[in-house]
Design a binder for these strands. Structure first.
Lengths: 228, 228
DNA sequence: ATAAAAATTTAGTCTTGCCTAATCTTATAT
DNA sequence: ATATAAGATTAGGCAAGACTAAATTTTTAT
C-alpha cells in the first residue's frame, strides 16, 4: 500500500487500540481488559488478544496473557497525539462547521486518522490554541503534556459548596444537549444548594440566579472543581 | 473491519483508482491505460489490472483486457464526489489554514478519503459554496454536475487577444508559486502582446499594466478563455 | 473446594491491496 | 513480415486486521 499516513505514524487500527487502552485504563496503573477494549472498538475479543500481542512487539503496551494491557511511555505519547487531534477536530467541527454534539464524535474519530501532524498544528493555530475542547476536556499539548484533571462529578459535591463546571461527559448526546440548553457548560459557576441522598437529585443555583434540579444521570455527567 | 467510512462509499483505494481514471481519461471517451494509472498512483501495473477487474465487477468501469478502463455513469458520479471533496478541502487548507501550494495536494488527498458527505457539505457552506478551487478548477456540485471547461493554454492564444485566466495547472508547485507571486491568478485579465513562434515565449500585459514574458513551461500552465 | 460461568487465547480463515516473476498481447521498427 | 520492445495479465505470495470455533485460564458461586 502506498503509505499516505505520516511518517512514524502507526496504522489507524493500532491508534484506535492505543486510544481505547488510554481511555479505559489511562494513567491509573491498571491494565485494560480484552473484553472492555473489544466492546469499545466493536471488535471481537480474539482480535484484541491478537492486537495486544502485536502492540507489545512494537513496544507500545506492556501485555501479559490473561492480564490485559497497559500503555508504555511511547504508547502513551502516541495515544495522546491522537487525543490531541481528536479534541482539536471536535472543537473545529462544533465551533465552525455547525456540527451537533451527536454527530461530532464519529466524524472526528474518522478524521483523526487521516490528518497529519502538520494539519493538526495548523488547525490548533486556526482555533487559537485552545486548552480545552467544547466538552471541557483538556487538549494535550503538541509535546504530549496533559493538564491533570482533578474534577469530580457534581453528584459527589457537598451542599453549600461553590463549584465551577470543568467538563461535561461526552457519553450521551441527549444529556449534552440538555445541559447546553440550560447553559450548564464548562466554565459556569454554581452554588450547590442541596444533595438529596434519597434519590441523588442535586439542586444548584447558577451565576444568573437560575435554579436547576439534576437527577443522578445528569449530576453524574457534570464534572466540577471547588471554587475558592 | 469496523466500517467507519460513510455508507455506500467504496474503499479509499477504489476511489483513488476512479479518480485516476477520471483525471487521465475523463469524459474523452478514451480508456485509461494500465500503465498510466499505475504511474499516477505509484503502484505496480499488475495491481491496476487487478483493480480494473474488480471495478468492473462493481459496475464502476467498463474494462476490456489489454484495452484499459473507462468510467461508467456510476463510476463517474463516484469520481466526481471525490473531486468535489478534494477541491473543497484544498480551498480550505489554502484559504484558512495557511497551507502552501506545495503542501496542499498531499494532505487533501489523504483527507478526501476520511470525510463524510455531511462534512463535505458543511465545509462547502463554511467556505461560501465556492464554484472554483484556488487553482481555478471548477468544483463539481453536490449532485455531480461539473462546469464545462473550455479554457486553453495561454501558449495557444493569439496576439492581440484579450483573455482572462481561468485556471493554473497544479502540476508543479514551483510554477504555481511563481505565478502567484506575479499575480497571474484565476480571474486576471490579460492582453496578449506577442506569441513568439521561435521559442514559445508569450508576452502579456496584465490589468495593472505590468508586462510579463512567459517561457513555454509557464505559458503551458496558464489556462485562459477569450474575453469578449 | 470444586463446579459452573466468564474471560481470554489459539488456531484456522477470509478479504483487501499490494508485490514480483513469468507469460501473453499488442505495437513498433526494420 | 517478422523480430523486438513495450504493455498488460496471470499466478503465487505476503501483511494487516477482522472473524468464528475450540481450547484454556481465571473468577465466581455454591
Amino acid at each position: 500500500m502506498t503509505n499516505l499516513t505520516a511518517p512514524h505514524s502507526p496504522s489507524s487500527s493500532v491508534g484506535d487500540y492505543l486510544k481505547a487502552v488510554w481511555e479505559l485504563a489511562g494513567d491509573t496503573g491498571e491494565a485494560a481488559s480484552t473484553k472492555d477494549v473489544a466492546a469499545r472498538l466493536s471488535v471481537s475479543p480474539a482480535s484484541v488478544s491478537n492486537m495486544f500481542a502485536r502492540l507489545q512487539e512494537m513496544g507500545l503496551v506492556g501485555y501479559e496473557r490473561y492480564r490485559g494491557a497497559m500503555l508504555t511511555q511511547s504508547g502513551r505519547v502516541e495515544a495522546l497525539r491522537l487525543v490531541r487531534r481528536h479534541r482539536l477536530i471536535e472543537t473545529f467541527l462544533l465551533g465552525h462547521l455547525g456540527y451537533s454534539w451527536e454527530e461530532v464524535h464519529e466524524e472526528a474519530e474518522r478524521l483523526e486518522h487521516a490528518v497529519s501532524d502538520g494539519f493538526t498544528e495548523r488547525l490548533a493555530e486556526f482555533l487559537g490554541h485552545p486548552g480545552h475542547d467544547p466538552h471541557g476536556d483538556p487538549i494535550p499539548t503538541a509535546d504530549g503534556a496533559l493538564e491533570p484533571d482533578d474534577s469530580f462529578p457534581l453528584g459527589e459535591s457537598e451542599a453549600k459548596e461553590r463549584v465551577r463546571i470543568y467538563k461535561v461527559s461526552d457519553e450521551d448526546a441527549r444529556v449534552l444537549d440538555y445541559l447546553a440548553e440550560h447553559d450548564l457548560v464548562p466554565g459556569r459557576l454554581l452554588e450547590v444548594r442541596e444533595i438529596r441522598a434519597l434519590d441523588g437529585v442535586v439542586t444548584v443555583k447558577d451565576e444568573d440566579g437560575r435554579v436547576h434540579s439534576l437527577g443522578e444521570p445528569l449530576a453524574r455527567s457534570v464534572f466540577v472543581r471547588d471554587e475558592p
